[in-house]
Design a binder for these strands. Structure first.
Lengths: 212, 212, 212, 212
DNA sequence: AATGAATGAGCTTTCATTCAT
DNA sequence: TATGAATGAAAGCTCATTCAT
């Protein structure tokens, strides 16, 4: 009777189910996860899943939604306007990487499952887009005299891509958060803020774009 | 009946099937692609697929293999040792991004499908790892007096991650190759080659690590 | 819809399925029996078969197991040690032949299907071997002064073979149980217990064994 | 090029194919044998099989037919009217068991495959029936003063059944022909020729028939 | 509120069989 | 004569989903 036939309040049951679902989805992937497996993991019966969530797709969407929200919440501290841009960047990086480090299942479900799943990618792309926007804003506000045509969004796309790649290594336990944050901070702070095609100049004085 | 019922030599049919398979896999994903759909797309019968490739898994593996090979071939020009590191980098970036631009299906199958498919990720990860190693080597060889503790591999991970993120935008038709190559070149050339935590120093002379 | 869509307790459904399976297997043979055919015969859907028995092989094994058990149970009375060997033999024969007479499907599935099916023959051969051993023992215990080199096992093999051949005729409705039991009793009681090569003697009086 | 593309006379090809077919059928059973396997074994192409035999069923029938004929031929010496009944029996037994011993594949295909194959059993049953008739005739002709109601056919059925069971052991290499022939000769000569229900007598002296 | 029982629909895979050369 | 190329048809199996209690 692990879990038994207790009557639980709806909110509790919902979380219990989502917890199980996120676990199994992150372990086996969306398609290789059966509703049976989730029900078993949650110690409830299959019809309960359908009663609460309607379908496998909706259940997965609920997972994405909850984990995405947690993800965004984890990044909130970075938005503190009292901090200098560079501090904000550092906080954002540590928040992001720390979240991945401590919620590997969330990360797997959100990024490695949802993004590759026809029909769910868009939903995740929203969270991702907000992260990219945030990053673009940070880059812009910390750049003095930006080159007129600078496209901070695409820079943010690249930076976030780098961040995700590094996050995968963190989720895999291959590197630690501090080291990763250092690397990305450097990358953001120096590599992205420069002019876009300043070959003739920067090859000689590449630092002019960002140094004091 | 586009294609008809002609008898084709084995080699031709093989390519015809792979073409169809790559198309459909890239459109619908591995799991949501049925062998029927591939057979229909290739204008052949399902048993032919099994006769030539044995199973869905093996067919998918064959797709990965062919596209992966093409991918590697596209990057070959970058290995020219006659070029200066920076030139090699530029060529590599343009080759890579150009390939993605002109073979969006290959990119989708290789990266967005294979990497997320349990059992195939490893196969692709190998190619990816080689790309990372190559990048790390490039970074190292273009850095004078590198900081002793510098981990070029993780830098390469980040850079490749950035490249993949940008490549996705190219595959999505959102940006063009030139712009993306500029961005990544800058990123690689300046952002990654410095010391890892040189705040106090490099913010003043960030160029010492790489400029003449 | 003979049977309808009622909800039945597990144990009942199990028997219902096995009944249908034994019927269809005995009619068409293992390979020419489809799971669809069994499901239809049992008035249920195919997934139920898989839910309860896992696979076609396991379903067939379950048939063998149940019918084999019934078969063994039918022979139990013969083991009564209070009976003289000859009585035991008579009871065994009548039990055996009576069972075949009244459970022709069981007989067909067990002997004509299972024994010829690679992978299941062994399972049945075990029961058969036990029957042979039992017969050998019976023969030995009812023989006074057995010839030293007498191989009772091979005798039992022959006798059981004769019994099976006769049983086939009973299952085919060609002869009746009494007649068959008489024949086999005679065969066992007189034909098998003698010396193996008594040429010189019996070739002259071959009739002494049976004539008045 | 084992076999190559030689033009062979029809008769030779036919035997070549049948040899291969009998081999593979006896190894894997009818259903688990594919036309591909037979073609490969015969070193020819599949369409040749169809050209010569029309269908898998017809090919199998041809196997049964050829092997059955050989089987019957092997028994021919036993019909020599110059021999005494007992000699005829001995010859028949040795012919039969010797054939099985030296043509195990034939035996397997004819008895263990064909008999259990819906649609072919009848065809084999013919050969078998002739064997049974022959046996019945031998029994009858060697019995003096047969009991009026004696059914020699069912006796022959039992005896042939015993012979087949013993033959299986020979095919399995468990016993040798001589020993088996001795046993069956004894069985036929003494066990089957008597009255069918001689209870009152033999229950008192059951051993008189065989003890010294 | 909760679940054991049940199924429609679809997928991968395998042949026996035939065509076109 | 001989075969590489091709397929129609069907089988085993799974799963998301629902009904009846």
């Amino acid at each position: 009777m692990a879990g038994g036939t207790k009557r639980l309040p709806r909110a509790v049951r919902e979380q219990q189910m989502l917890d199980a679902a996120v676990d199994v989805f992150s372990e086996n992937g969306f398609h290789d996860t059966s509703m049976d497996a989730i029900a078993t993991r949650a110690s409830i019966s299959k019809p309960m899943l359908y009663l609460y969530y309607g379908s496998k797709d909706e259940l997965f969407a609920a997972c994405i939604s909850r984990e995405g929200q947690r993800f965004v919440e984890a990044l909130t501290p970075a938005g503190d306007p009292a901090l200098a841009p560079r501090e904000q960047l550092r906080v954002a990086l540590e928040s992001f990487l720390g979240f991945v480090d401590q919620h590997r299942n969330s990360w797997m479900v959100l990024y490695r499952q949802a993004l590759s799943q026809q029909g769910f990618a868009g939903q995740v792309q929203n969270s991702r887009d907000r992260l990219i926007e945030l990053t673009a804003h940070l880059l812009e506000s910390s750049t003095r005299e930006p080159d007129p045509g600078t496209d901070f969004t695409i820079m943010a796309v690249a930076l976030v891509g780098a961040g995700e790649a590094v996050a995968d290594r963190i989720a895999g336990g291959e590197i630690d958060v501090e080291k990763a944050a250092d690397l990305l901070e450097n990358l953001a702070w120096r590599g992205l803020a420069g002019k876009k095609r300043p070959d003739h100049l920067e090859s000689e004085h590449p630092e002019t774009g960002y140094s004091a």
